[in-house]
Design a protein around this nucleic acid. Structure first.
Lengths: 152, 152
DNA sequence: CCACAAATGCAACAATGTTGCGTTTGTGGC
DNA sequence: GCCACAAACGCAACATTGTTGCATTTGTGG
């Protein structure tokens, strides 16, 4: 097998990003890539404990996550409860060109066909970093059966 | 002047909502209505201190905010730093037909001229509750002076 | 005006995230 | 393979934001 020009295993990703390859970082990156949705700090701690290895220090985990975000290998966001959630960068690339629908009932995320709207023009001096169309409501299953969902 | 059928002062709003009218709640509701953007707990504490009256107990403020949310007089959301922000219910109506730009640096919210994009069509059975165009980056002041903002 | 439930103030606690500092470890150079 | 050094780690302590328990005060209906 020839050497991969597009690195995909955690160690290579870390090397390519220019930060040291440590067991902790490899484990965290693996966990992020294996996750089907962004993980918060606590979930990640639990996840890592399952590996059979000793649980990682809380602060170290925070620092690893920060370093991954800083070098672009991970993304940081905040959920509705105000907790930071981390996801592997690149995981969202496949989710680039369509809109997501979030079910507020079951928490599920669904991909819509529609293209995201173009970013708006900003006033002088403003810099756009991210523009996201946040669409939420209830999915087909959750809409159907029970919840009247406070129409007020 | 006839009795108002649409109550608008804090005390009447509280009465109409069916919860006790207390000085604290009136003050908080006034602050919320006077605010040009959602306030976090700390900002509200500061705001209330300015009134000349004694600052309110931290826990009491939390509970007042919760009670206002519970009876529908206030709305609770979470900002990018993971902090809860509260706004007067109805206050968002005047903010309905344009896009908001959120500065990730100073936390400020700015109103853009552009109209919000039309809501996407949903698959069968899905119910839309909210569609919001979330635009963020750095405002003119924060973009200008200091931060290189990790261009990497 | 009274009684009672609701609201408040205080203290303590809980969850999440950060800082300082001494020790360990990955990495480049030999 | 070995060394030195900076980066990463582990630990302890701290900071911020939000919550819970409980005794006291206060708004409201009668």
């Amino acid at each position: 097998m020839a050497s991969a020009s597009i690195p995909s295993n955690p160690a290579d990703l870390l090397r390519a990003a220019g930060i040291k390859v440590t067991p902790g970082r490899v484990r965290v990156l693996q966990a992020l890539h294996g996750a089907r949705q962004p993980l918060c700090h606590g979930e990640m701690e639990a996840q890592l404990g399952v590996d059979g290895e000793a649980a990682m220090d809380r602060v170290t985990l925070y620092r690893i996550l920060d370093s991954l975000v800083a070098c672009g290998l991970a993304l940081k966001a905040v959920d509705t409860r105000g907790v930071f959630r981390f996801s592997a960068a690149g995981a969202q690339r496949q989710h680039a060109n369509h809109i997501h629908f979030r079910c507020t009932d079951c928490g599920g995320v669904f991909c819509l066909k529609a293209e995201p709207p173009p970013p708006p023009t900003l006033p002088e001096g403003f810099r756009l970093r991210r523009a996201e169309f946040d669409v939420c409501g209830t999915c087909d299953r959750c809409s159907g059966d029970t919840t009247p969902l406070v129409p007020r």
